[in-house]
């Protein structure tokens, strides 16, 4: 053990600057494998970057080449596990600034940096928490944060040519798709993902529509079709403005509906809020469970599959 610690294991005492430092990046003698590969493929990877950007990034790593896919396997016996990059500190700050100070739409930021919109939202929320803690004088675990970030691969902040952060091909596994089904079909039938989803459950969406970041997928499709970067961004902006308009229309309709069907009558101690509803939603058999009021002779559906009592939003 001590032989290893003094020999090949010495490389793991200190993290490599600006890079991950996993076991699989070294050979048995403790040599960094990618040093030998340096000359061959470094040029190809940075073909789309400016000269000074390449220089700066290489400088951050003390002249080492960037880690490739095979250097990002922390467990040598588990070749399938690849360490995914996390957002660098600069990128987090840039995202927060773009969203909170410049007021840029979350979706636009997500599309520009290739980050899932939920992650962008999480960054903004967590930065708010961080600011609040700083104001309260709560200590932040900065040393821990820095240590972890120094060990993990990170996505750098490059405003001119941002690298994509998320792999967009990951499909979320829905619990309903975990069962094994043998479905006989004719050979001539074209069996698509939509058919597969229908087989699992009639109301299950196809895998393509269950992807949590359809914007990133759309951008990748445009890229595949050969649109250049400006065109893609313009198309994305158009899509964004459309969705904003749709949201505003929905909100306007809701306001109109409230004005039409609601009235609040001030009482002596509290207000009485009246809501005009339709008593005909009970259907002809009088059992429609969407109707207002408690139904007679109808069992509750609250133990049925897919009924959630945990609130999903906070007002």
């Amino acid at each position: 053990m001590f032989a290893w610690l003094k020999g090949p294991g010495k490389a793991f005492r200190k993290p490599l600057p600006g890079s991950s430092n996993y076991l699989s990046a070294y050979d048995r003698q403790g040599n960094l494998i990618r040093k030998g590969r340096e000359e061959r493929d470094d040029r190809g990877r940075f073909a789309d970057l400016g000269e000074d950007e390449v220089l700066k990034e290489t400088e951050d790593r003390d002249g080492l080449p960037k880690e490739g896919a095979r250097d990002l396997k922390p467990y040598p016996l588990n070749a399938q596990f690849k360490s995914q990059p996390v957002l660098s500190e600069d990128l987090r700050r840039a995202i927060n600034e773009l969203v909170t100070e410049n007021g840029i739409d979350l979706k636009a930021v997500s599309a520009a940096f290739g980050i899932d919109v939920r992650r962008v939202a999480a960054v903004v929320r967590l930065m708010e928490v961080e600011k609040a803690w700083e104001q309260e004088g709560k200590p932040l675990a900065k040393a821990y944060n820095d240590a972890v970030l120094a060990m993990l691969p990170t996505t750098p902040y490059r405003p001119s040519n941002p690298p994509a952060h998320e792999p967009i091909n990951d499909l979320p596994v829905h619990p309903w798709t975990r069962q094994q089904i043998f479905l006989p079909t004719s050979e001539s039938r074209v069996f698509t993902r939509a058919d597969a989803a229908k087989t699992f459950h009639p109301s299950l969406l196809p895998a393509d529509e269950r992807i949590a970041h359809p914007e990133l997928v759309q951008i990748a499709k445009w890229e595949h079709e050969g649109f250049d970067r400006e065109t893609r961004q313009r198309l994305m902006r158009e899509k964004d403005s459309e969705s904003v308009a749709r949201k505003e229309m929905k909100e306007y309709k809701r306001k109109q509906w409230e004005r039409r069907t609601q009235v609040t009558v001030p009482g002596r101690r509290w207000d009485f809020k009246f809501q005009d509803i339709s008593a005909e939603k009970v259907n002809k058999d009088g059992r429609g469970h969407e109707a207002v009021g408690i139904r007679y002779g109808m069992p509750h559906e609250d133990r049925k599959k897919g009924q959630f009592k945990i609130p999903t939003k906070v007002e």
């Binding site: 001030p266 009485f272 809501q275 509803i277």
Partner: peptide, 18 residues
């Protein structure tokens, strides 16, 4: 979203036309 001291409301839903 009510603040401290805001008035409470009693909720009534009724089909006015019926």
């Amino acid at each position: 979203g009510a603040k401290e001291g805001d008035r409470k409301t009693k909720e009534i839903k009724v089909d006015v036309s019926r």
